[in-house]
């Protein structure tokens, strides 16, 4: 379980002042839950994910994972970044093996596990011998997913992982993610600025407004598998769009092309 207690996070500005990004945020994410964090650019989505990942510490408040305060990154809270972030000097197989080796796996066991995760993510042994520069965006994200899934994390933190991919690849990877999540029931926190993506993937959506402190969670009352063209799905999308804790002005909308359709004040 992930718990945020009255979390406040600000960043120092050049003029000596500090800019609050998150203010007084309380959140509980249950084990096995799929939570999407939705909001316009600059609302603190990635900051929130970084706090849970342990990359940064809150200015005030506490972030707990299974009752323990998070103070550093760890494989139990694995992160999938927006741009895959593979090590360019390692082949695909060695990228996947990186974390496994740090867990003490070696020799035949390591090779077998790498091969298994290549296969799970639809990659061939031939792909495994390639360097990251030779991969497409979709393949890179598959490797990035394989790299963290192989570590069997308790929570998967995903920062707009498919946002730079074309629609077909994005939807295919969303399906694969849901399949893996259904099989493993790993807690997933998924940052996105696409209403459709949040409605399609999540059990619950945390809506972050452009002002710090304006946040609320909304459940997604849809059964799986979800149909993107169904009346219910479209209604859920509309409800999410209308559910923001404060009106999103036109400027915010202009900076967030994925918040398609605009927001009702």
């Amino acid at each position: 379980m992930i718990v945020l207690e009255r979390v406040f996070k600000s960043f120092p500005l050049d003029d000596g002042r500090s800019e609050p990004v998150l203010s007084d945020l309380n959140l509980t994410v249950s084990e096995g839950e799929f939570l999407a964090i939705l909001g316009p650019s600059g609302c603190g989505k990635t900051t929130l994910l970084n706090l849970i990942a342990g990359f940064t510490a809150p200015t005030r408040g506490r972030v707990l994972f299974n009752g323990t305060e998070i103070d550093r990154p760890a494989p139990e809270r694995a992160v999938v970044f927006q741009d895959a972030v593979l090590f360019p000097w390692l082949t695909v197989s060695r990228n996947i093996a990186f974390g496994l080796k740090l867990q003490g796996l070696k020799g035949k066991n390591l090779d077998e596990k790498v091969s298994r995760y290549l296969a799970i993510m639809g990659l061939t042994e031939e792909d495994g011998a390639k360097y990251p520069h030779a991969l497409s965006g979709g393949m890179s994200q598959r490797v990035s997913l394989a790299r963290v899934l192989a570590l069997k994390p308790k929570a998967l933190l995903m920062d707009e992982p498919f946002s730079s991919l074309d629609v077909d690849t994005r939807e295919r990877l969303q399906e694969e993610l849901l399949r893996l999540w259904a099989a493993r029931r790993t807690t997933v926190i998924y940052v996105t600025h696409s209403v459709e993506e949040a409605a399609y993937l999540a059990d619950r959506v945390l809506l972050l407004g452009p002002s710090p402190g304006r946040a609320r969670t909304v459940p997604v009352p849809l059964k799986r598998p979800r149909n993107r063209r169904s009346e219910e799905f479209l209604a859920t999308k509309e409800a999410l769009r209308g559910g923001f804790p404060e009106p999103l002005c036109c400027a915010t909308f202009r900076h967030s092309p994925h918040l398609e359709g605009g927001f009702r004040p």
């Binding site: 990942a53 990359f55 550093r72 990154p73 760890a74 494989p75 809270r77 694995a78 992160v79 970044f81 741009d83 972030v85 090590f87 000097w89 990186f98 974390g99 740090l102 867990q103 790299r147 963290v148 570590l151």
Partner: peptide, 28 residues
């Protein structure tokens, strides 16, 4: 790239691994 260092930390790298297996090749 800070993200490379963060990725390695998240995968379980300690200071030694971070330096020799990430920082050094990234600086090559």
């Amino acid at each position: 790239d800070t993200r490379l260092l963060r990725a390695a930390q998240m995968l379980g790298a300690g200071e030694g691994t971070l330096f020799f297996h990430v920082f050094l090749p990234a600086t090559l």
